[in-house]
Design a protein around this nucleic acid. Structure first.
Lengths: 177, 177
DNA sequence: TATATTAAGTTGCTTTAAAAGACCCATTAT
DNA sequence: ATAATGGGTCTTTTAAAGCAACTTAATATA
């Protein structure tokens, strides 16, 4: 299919989806998180077509989520391993897994549990929080123009409030029920 | 293209991706979170093709992430609004936005800021935490078979530990650097 | 009341990404 | 020396995404 990219949208979500929004990509990240490193292990664990896998791995390497390094110095055979950037995505993967547990399987049907290795207890549910640790309901979250906002974004999200010195924004948009 | 679905994989991530992993879907959820409700507003804000939008909205309604309700009782025109299930996904959207902010734009170039409406402060970064609130590094997270694990999953993740009464698992898999 | 405009799709055609599987070449094992 | 395996590429189908034109019902305007 013809397909547009999102990279022109001034939106961090669109940028992120341009990198990891393709079919199979996030499953490959999960698999790498599980410790899989070799091409054919990705292939057999996921059941993905080899050409698609080759394409996805290349893109992930190009985008800096995976590092491709020879098995032994000078060897042709390589391993794929998560970079820091890729590892940072695992938060998203875990949030999605938990969402799947809550809404697709019931909590008691989930195939895998994530535990805190130091205590053996299950981990907490990933939540949006205030700086002081309070869990935030979506209604408590407001959207304001960020430091890199362009005119259109300011127009959509911003309502300036006169204040001494720096520009301040009043919250206009927030969670719509 | 021919395309497989992930719904046969016993994995909550695959299930979640089957629902929200398609091109455009998460952007539609974001847009709904921003307060967009009408077909043509989704269309013009996102620049998505109308037939694709119609298809995505239908699927999101069928999967229970959006509710379609008439603008006025008895009216033919309708609004699309997030359900609880859809609203619960916003955690994932925010985690992805923050990832995009960290790795695509710099923190200081991000177009939108999320703030705690009660204090006006920016929200915290979404993180994986232990029950007691400690932020967990990926190396601290272990994977063990969940209550709904099948034989293959137990085989992959489980290593039983003899213990009085209930089955316990020893952590075998965890974050691979 | 007649006419124009808008909203919310639907239909049909084109383009291209993904699936499936055959094929290839270098390395490792026998 | 020969076979098997790992890590891919090539070719062919097919279905999803894009685009534009059309439809139908509800609103707005003259």
């Amino acid at each position: 299919m013809k397909r547009v990219t999102f990279d022109h949208m001034r939106c961090s979500l669109a940028q992120a989806l341009d990198v990891i929004g393709e079919w199979w990509t996030l499953l490959i990240i999960r698999e790498a998180y599980f410790g899989t490193r070799r091409f054919s292990d990705f292939q057999s664990e996921l059941g993905i077509a080899r050409n698609v896998l080759a394409d996805r791995l290349d893109r992930l390497v190009a985008n800096g989520l995976l590092r491709k390094e020879p098995v032994a110095p000078g060897a042709r055979r390589a391993h794929y391993r998560l970079t820091e950037k890729g590892r940072d995505l695992v938060t998203v993967v875990i949030a999605l897994v938990q969402w799947g547990d809550r809404w697709v399987y019931g909590e008691d049907e989930r195939p895998v549990s994530l535990i805190d290795r130091t205590t053996g207890e299950e981990i907490d549910e990933v939540r949006v929080r205030a700086r002081d640790g309070r869990a935030l309901d979506l209604r408590d979250i407001g959207l304001v123009p960020g430091p890199g906002a362009d005119a259109a974004t300011r127009d959509r999200f911003g309502e300036t409030v006169a204040e001494s010195g720096a520009v301040r924004w009043r919250v206009r948009r927030h969670m719509a029920a």
